[in-house]
Design a protein around this nucleic acid. Structure first.
Lengths: 187, 187
DNA sequence: ACCCTCATGTAAGTAGTTACATGATTAC
DNA sequence: GTAATCATGTAACTACTTACATGAGGGT
């Protein structure tokens, strides 16, 4: 049950409308908790009904008009409760590793090696993007606790993409050329 | 839509009953594609109806009796098709990183740091387990392509757990003691 | 008038989780 | 006989995805 808490966090960082949240879920927050606009609008409705957030008063009509939300005290309390609570690490579900394992029984088609290369490129691109964020953040300085925490999260994203790039290199090397030369590690 | 393909892979590796599959999803396969017995039985029903697998003939009655399944040619073809197909990397959803980010707005409670340490221990335990698998596999030797592929998957698991352990060390260090000494890296 | 973008939503379907039901076999 | 374990399943619910609907405002 993390989506409502992701939204509460986003709204505490900055009160927003549904569409603005959607855009933010396509960038920063979405890098470790993705959500579509349909999920977001539905969840905003639930959170409002539960008294965790409210729509900022406006004189414009309902449909087709921007509606901004802010977090209320009970919403903040719920978020605090959730942050400190005990929760098991989520079980992994990765289709790419599954597909690799399947080649053990159906054989390695050229299709999969191509897929591994394509994924490698996607992860490398995201890694570069994150590093650009990091460079920009470092320039702005990082005094507050909020900056430090977001820095740790960003570092997590970077380390995770590094894992993917390096492991995919090993996998491509292991599949494409069993007469292998060891892949150089990206650091 | 990966669960049916995970099951097809498992059944090709070794024909099994629902409960046997469930156990295997608690070990090897489940390390990168988890599933409960309810999901597995439901999916076995669908796969049988689709003509992708069949129950091995038996004289025992239905309920409470073991029912073994094997993969049929159409099932194998479907798996081959799926392995080579293009599929985007799945969007990440990690509650722990989300909780860390939330501390940026609600502040760092002692609860979260404890959680990070707990998760760190869980990942370290799994890492040790994987390395034990690797040691055992190395002893048995790895001649076939199937062994090599499973070795790559296992290496993926190890690298991923290494990412978690090392990043969690950074995060714990960054939160608990901003007067930090740098964490030593596990390699 | 037409199209594009901004903006909010509804509906239907798939996937995954949690709780419960029930029969068969073995150990004591 | 009764408890534990093996084994298969149903039902209800929550979460997520995909496709579509609709209205407002601006540009040409």
């Amino acid at each position: 049950m993390s989506l409502p808490h992701a939204i509460l966090t986003a709204l505490l960082e900055k009160p927003s409308s549904g569409l603005e949240l959607t855009r933010r879920f396509d960038r920063s927050i979405g890098y470790f908790w993705s959500a579509t606009h349909q999920q977001i609008y539905r969840e905003l409705g639930k959170l409002e009904k539960a008294g965790h957030i409210r729509a900022l008063p406006t004189d414009s009509p309902a449909r087709g008009q921007k509606k901004e939300y802010e977090v209320l005290a009970p919403g903040r309390e719920e978020l605090e409760r959730w942050v400190g609570q005990r929760e098991e690490p989520r079980a992994l579900r990765d289709p790419l590793m599954l597909r690799l394992r399947a080649t053990g029984v159906v054989g390695v088609g050229e299709g999969l090696v191509e897929e591994l290369r394509r994924h490698r490129a996607l992860h490398a691109a995201r890694l570069a993007e994150y590093r650009e964020f990091q460079r920009r953040d470092a320039a702005r300085g990082h005094g507050t606790e909020r900056d430090r925490v977001q820095g740790l999260v960003l570092q997590g994203g970077i380390d995770l993409e590094l894992f993917w790039v390096n492991w995919l290199d090993k996998a491509i090397d292991g599949l494409a050329g069993p007469e292998h030369t060891p892949a150089s590690q990206v650091g």
